[in-house]
């Protein structure tokens, strides 16, 4: 269970999130969509405990040790090879060396990077580095997976490949996943639910059940609905500023 109740967060005097209330569905993929800088990464930092809310409550039964993160900019350690980078994901896990070995090899197999375990990040393409980031996040078998714009740093073709691989993984790994993105296509391809956020300070504009909306009205209608919701917010903000 993961719930935000009137959560507010500020950096110094700047309010980043304002009275945000959200409920995330277990074992499903929730996309968080909003303009750049609206506070998507801040929401993830609040969930992973890196920062504390200024007010409000975050209810969760996910222990910090069961939360994993996939970063937009990969954040692999350049002096570690692929195997050692994935092993970082097991830093807080116990178990014998052979157990960890098995988990790491299994994670690398999941993302089709087994043959690259001895390579270093500087020898890998962006898509391969993101796969390693994903393996690092999955190796500890997390209960909650946070993916912060995971496909924004790769080209369109690589993105498509990664999306297809993640779709296959989704059903295998069954983990509650939150994906922060500003790409509507990520919502259509991956999400079960989408949360639309306003620009900073972020508030919730709308929550849409993606699968049922697409079944009812189609992908284009979903994109139009998301676009309309975000645009109407921007228009109303501009009118308020102009007046």
């Amino acid at each position: 269970m993961l719930e935000f109740r009137d959560v507010t967060f500020s950096y110094s005097d700047a309010e980043i999130i304002k009275k945000l209330s959200l409920n995330f569905v277990n074992n499903r993929v929730t996309a968080i969509v909003g303009p750049s800088g609206c506070g998507k990464s801040t929401i993830f930092k609040l969930i992973s405990g890196l920062i504390k809310p200024s007010s409000g409550i975050i209810n969760t039964d996910f222990h910090r040790d069961t939360i994993s993160y996939v970063f937009q900019d990969y954040r692999l350690l350049p002096w570690f090879n692929v195997y050692e980078n994935v092993a970082v994901g097991l830093a807080r896990s116990g178990g014998s060396r052979s157990d960890k070995d098995g988990l790491i090899n299994s994670a690398l197999c999941l993302v089709n990077m087994s043959s690259c375990s001895a390579m270093y990040p500087f020898q890998l393409s962006g898509g391969m580095q993101q796969r390693v980031g994903l393996a690092r996040a999955l190796v500890s078998k997390p209960e909650l997976l946070l993916m912060d714009e995971p496909f924004s740093a790769v080209d369109g073709q690589t993105r498509q490949l990664l999306v297809e691989e993640f779709k296959q993984l989704k059903d295998e790994i069954l983990v509650t996943t939150l994906i922060a993105t500003h790409q509507f296509q990520d919502v259509i391809d991956l999400a079960d639910q989408v949360v639309l956020l306003s620009s900073s300070p972020a508030t919730c504009l709308k929550i849409i059940n993606v699968q049922s909306y697409i079944e009812h009205s189609g992908e284009k209608a979903l994109c139009d609905e998301m676009w309309k919701t975000l645009k109407s917010y921007v228009d109303s903000t501009l009118k308020h500023v102009a007046s």
């Binding site: 954040r75 002096w79 690092r136």
Partner: peptide, 24 residues
């Protein structure tokens, strides 16, 4: 600081952050 943040998210202790991230 992004690498330190990554280490914190994945549960690296201060000592582990020192020898796996800071010193290299």
């Amino acid at each position: 600081p992004k690498l330190i943040e990554m280490g914190t998210v994945f549960g690296l202790t201060r000592a582990q952050q020192l020898y796996k991230i800071v010193i290299p």
